[in-house]
């Protein structure tokens, strides 16, 4: 026995000696699971086109991730599934009838330029999927935001192959076709990008993420809440303000982006206080872009702009460590003030 023990080489790892079962890969897998309802609705409404776009996007994202790491002789990273998430998210923001090469260009930009050139997972400061989308929007706007396939649920009512989304209808005429009721938009019976149409499916995914503690409620709630409240205040066109606020939330990419894009770890603030500020910022920018910008949809740029502010928000909204009371904070402020005045 003694001899045997001598041969055992002991690790002297530092504490803690145990760790949670939740790994990066598990978190990414949870995001993919949470996206399944939206994926299912997309396939149901738009058929094989949607499936093709998603398959191309995911496989090209994984391919570029693998290729870049291989090419630069870095450790393989496709196991963490983050490239799959990026590829799928990008596809979900695409119309189902976009050419299949479009997501390939988009994922190249997302994975290689936005993510890997800055060091890979966790190091990028822009959301790769959204940056990829913004790149495509700027380069191939007609392929992306021209016309959208008529979903299966509206085929009986509309005698066309493609049509404008409710949000662009809102943007143009300021009125809504009678086709889009709150119920149809909530369930996903409207034209739009593959993954954004069904608020219900996205909320199911969001609840799953909350229950699995993958995300906290702070960003989605403050983001969507801000858009709702501001739309309520501003209103638009000949619609009632209440109706407009509801449409503002349901008609575009807001829910998809608030739940799955704005909550992206590496590009959003890490403190809960900071996340609230960030969500409100995203909401304000979305409403401003929708109202005054030249695009009907504003969430992509709103989030990308707030991505750039994350670092500053984190610095500005730090929390006080344990043992620091309100009085201590007040005293510190007073001391600073006094020092300033003394300097004068």
């Amino acid at each position: 026995m003694n001899e045997k023990k001598e041969r055992i080489i002991l690790d002297v790892a530092y504490q803690p000696q145990v760790r949670t079962a939740v790994s990066t890969r598990r978190l990414m897998l949870d995001v993919l699971i949470a996206l399944l309802p939206a994926v299912a609705v997309g396939i149901y409404q738009f058929g094989a086109h949607a499936l093709l776009v998603m398959a191309t996007s995911v496989s090209s994202a994984v391919f570029f991730e693998w290729l870049y790491r291989k090419f630069t002789k870095k450790t393989a990273s496709i196991d963490d599934l983050s490239a799959v998430v990026t590829g799928l998210l990008l596809a979900l923001t695409m119309p189902a009838n976009c050419p299949a090469w479009i997501p390939v260009v988009g994922t190249f930009f997302a994975i290689v330029v936005v993510k890997q050139l800055y060091g890979g997972i966790g190091k990028n400061f822009l959301n790769p999927a959204l940056a990829g989308r913004a790149f495509l929007l700027a380069s191939y706007s007609t392929a992306l935001s021209g016309t959208y396939l008529v979903p299966r649920g509206l085929k009986n009512a509309v005698d066309a192959v493609s049509m404008a989304t409710p949000l662009s209808a809102l943007y143009g005429e300021g009125s809504m076709s009678g086709l889009y009721t709150v119920k149809s938009m909530f369930l996903g019976n409207m034209p739009g990008a593959i993954g954004e149409i069904s608020t219900l499916a996205l909320l199911i995914g969001g609840m799953y993420l909350l229950c699995r503690k993958v995300i906290t409620w702070h960003i989605p709630v403050s983001f969507i809440g801000t858009v709702f409240v501001l739309s309520l205040l501003f209103g638009k066109g000949n619609m009632g303000q209440g109706a407009y606020a509801v449409y503002a939330v349901l008609s575009g990419a807001l829910v998809l982006s608030a739940v799955f894009m704005a909550t992206d770890y590496s590009t959003s603030p890490v403190t809960l206080k900071g996340q609230l500020v960030y969500g409100v910022g995203c909401g304000i920018l979305t409403v401003l872009i929708r109202k005054f910008g030249s695009y009907p949809e504003g969430v992509t740029y709103a989030i990308l702009i707030m991505n750039l502010c994350s670092w500053a928000i984190d610095k500005g909204f730090r929390r006080h460590q344990f043992g620091v009371s309100k009085e201590d904070i007040e005293a510190e402020k007073a001391a600073k003030k006094a020092a300033k005045e003394a300097a004068k």
Binding site: A13, V18, R19, T20, A21, S23, T24, L27, T75, S77, D80, S82, G120, I121, G122, K123, T216, Y265, S266, P269, V270, T271, L272, R318, R319, H320, Q321, F322, G323
Partner: peptide, 23 residues
């Protein structure tokens, strides 16, 4: 459950659990 080459993903889960409320 250790990782040879760990990459921080900035999820902030460390912040939420720190009993000293550090970052």
């Amino acid at each position: 459950r250790h990782e040879e080459e760990p990459h921080c993903i900035r999820c902030g889960k460390c912040i939420q659990v720190c009993p000293m409320r550090l970052e």
